[in-house]
Amino acid sequence: MDMSLPLPKYHQIYLVLREQLQEGRFDRDGVPGEHQLAEQFGVGRITIRKSMEMLVADGLIVRRPGLGTWPLQQGRSTGDGKGSRISREKAHLNGLLGNIVTMGLRTRVHVIDSTVVNATEAIAEALALDSGASVLKCIRVRSAQTGPISYITTHVPEGLAQITRKDLERKPMLVLLEEAGVELGAATQTISARLADAVVARHLEVAVGSALLAVTRLVRDVNERPVQLLQGLYRPDRYQYQMQLSRVGGIDAKVSVSDELATKSS
């Protein structure tokens, strides 16, 4: 591992294993156990376990007690001979959207509010609705082990999905939309800065007037219909947005929540 990289060890190991899985390295014998991987990378089992949890959340592996860890396509027919079905609820969410869902699965959420309201002109315009149309408005605070990360407000057209408060506490919104039959397409995202007001400061445990990352994300389905408008405020010491640019124009973006970053910055 490159210790100069601004990534925690478990994330570096996750990236290495993900690449090896995509190469088919473990198709025949399965993924090595935690003890073997810990020795190979020179880290503790807890670090390896975090990496494996990310791979599970990405839909790349399945872990079966007593039977080992297998690439997901192998896990469907390996071990018990019953061809049991393994959920891939987010395996088809690729790129940045998939990364966002992965982060959501690795953090915990507190739902502050979830109600149906009339859309303001700005919300209605963003979601291509008539002004005053009914939308589901949700306000959530997402946290990691180090504390609160983000204060998120989302608006979804009413009737698009039956989403309860309990659903929001268990799964990311994008997963719930897909489970309701929405075929997610692309998203447009802007990032800027904003100062914390009294309400947001209290929930994010920062001083009033603290600088926050402000993210606005409009998600569309495969037919270009807007299905979610997210407005999020993030603590910059606990949330990162990274982009890798290539000479041929490719862009790979990801978001990450780093406990190590939070420890160093707090």
Rank of each mutant, 00 (worst) to 15 (best):
M54F: 11
H92L: 06
E183L: 05
V222N: 12
S256Y: 09
R170W: 00
Q36G: 04
H11L: 13
R106P: 07
Q228M: 11
S258A: 08
K254M: 15
G249N: 02
G30D: 15
A196L: 10
K264C: 05
P226A: 05
M54A: 14
V109A: 15
D29A: 14
R235F: 00
E169N: 05
L5C: 02
S84P: 03
P236K: 08
R225K: 13
T216H: 00
D80H: 07
V227P: 14
R202Q: 04
V219P: 06
T190Y: 03
L233A: 03
Q73S: 03
A193V: 04
V227F: 12
T146H: 13
I100W: 06
T102G: 07
S192Q: 09
Y14G: 00
G24E: 12
G30W: 14
V219S: 12
L15A: 07
V227C: 12
I48S: 06
E178K: 11
D130V: 03
G79R: 11
E23R: 13
Y234H: 14
P236H: 04
V248K: 07
Q244R: 14
R106G: 15
G181Y: 13
L105D: 12
E121T: 10
Q40V: 01
L37C: 08
E89I: 06
G104N: 05
Q74N: 04
I163K: 01
P71W: 12
V255Q: 00
A193Q: 08
A198L: 03
Q40C: 01
A207R: 10
E19A: 12
L233H: 03
A187Q: 09
A180T: 13
V135R: 07
P157Q: 09
V117Q: 09
S51Q: 03
Q240F: 00
L229R: 01
Q244S: 11
Q162L: 08
Y151C: 10
I48D: 01
G83Q: 09
V206D: 00
D237V: 15
H35V: 15
G68N: 12
T188K: 07
K166F: 06
E260H: 12
E260Y: 09
A253H: 02
P226I: 08
S192R: 12
E205G: 00
G209K: 01
R140T: 13
L230M: 11
S77R: 07
L212G: 06
L21G: 09
P172M: 04
E34W: 08
D113Y: 02
R165L: 07
E121V: 09
E89C: 04
V222F: 00
D27Y: 04
A180L: 14
E158P: 04
C138K: 06
K137C: 03
S114E: 08
D252W: 02
M173F: 07
Q20A: 09
R64D: 02
V111N: 06
M243F: 03
L177C: 02
L177E: 02
D27G: 04
S246G: 10
A193E: 06
G249D: 02
R140G: 02
E260A: 15
H110R: 10
P6C: 03
Q228C: 08
Y239E: 01
A126S: 14
H155T: 11
C138S: 14
A201L: 01
V111C: 05
A214I: 00
V227S: 12
P65F: 09
S143T: 07
R88Y: 03
R194F: 01
